[in-house]
């Protein structure tokens, strides 16, 4: 069983926001903790530790996951996207721009997860109905907004992305 990916500190490698990273972490360490503690990517938040609030949502191999429920060993070889990879201060991602303009972020603690869930939703379904937006974000709890302006933000991204597609422009991320 020399092929076994063992446990602990052997070194687990994956791609985070386009960059290959290798960490010497225990296999049962949560991906959330590896991102925050080993890679200092503290944009991903912990709200509940039981996959209920979605604050730790990241994309892994093109799917949305709660990083608090992923033992890092299972991320070996994966491609991971976190909020830090979405946009930059001088070039916000259209999703970030929409949330800023539409009031989709208040206290901001659910925001990184909400942005990643939105990115996932729109990657799979570029023109979601309001029902699909609600379902796509139902695993991300926001206690501040009552969600309405988050839905508005997602709708605004769709409009913006369509406009960009029409004019043939490109955007970051």
């Amino acid at each position: 069983m020399s092929e076994h990916l063992a446990n602990s500190s052997a070194g687990i490698s994956f791609i985070v926001n386009g960059e290959k990273r290798t960490v010497a972490a225990h296999g049962m360490k949560r991906l959330l903790d590896v991102l925050r503690e080993d890679l200092h990517l503290t944009g991903t938040k912990e709200g509940c530790g039981e996959g209920e609030c979605g604050s730790c949502s990241v994309r892994m191999n093109g799917e949305l996951v709660n990083s608090c429920l992923v033992p890092v060993l299972q991320a070996e070889g994966a491609t991971i996207e976190t909020v830090e990879g979405l946009g930059r201060a001088e070039a916000l991602h259209p999703i970030q721009k929409a949330f800023l303009e539409c009031g989709g972020a208040q206290c901001g603690i659910c925001t990184p997860g909400m942005l990643m869930a939105t990115a996932q939703l729109l990657a799979v379904n570029p023109h979601p109905t309001i029902g699909e937006i609600r379902e796509g974000l139902a695993g991300n709890l926001c206690r501040c907004t009552g969600f309405k302006r988050i839905f508005d933000s997602v709708a605004a991204v769709v409009v913006e992305m369509d406009a960009t597609a029409k004019t043939g422009g490109a955007h970051a991320g």
């Binding site: 069983m1 092929e3 076994h4 990916l5 063992a6 446990n7 602990s8 972490a25 225990h26 296999g27 049962m28 360490k29 949560r30 903790d33 912990e46 530790g49 033992p71 060993l73 299972q74 070996e76």
Partner: peptide, 23 residues
């Protein structure tokens, strides 16, 4: 986080046979 990762062992044999052999 009340659990301690270091108190557990996790391995990934990567194949069904690998898992079944172990079990």
């Amino acid at each position: 986080m009340r659990g301690n990762a270091e108190a557990h062992e996790l391995i990934a044999p990567g194949s069904l046979t690998g898992v079944l052999e172990l079990m």
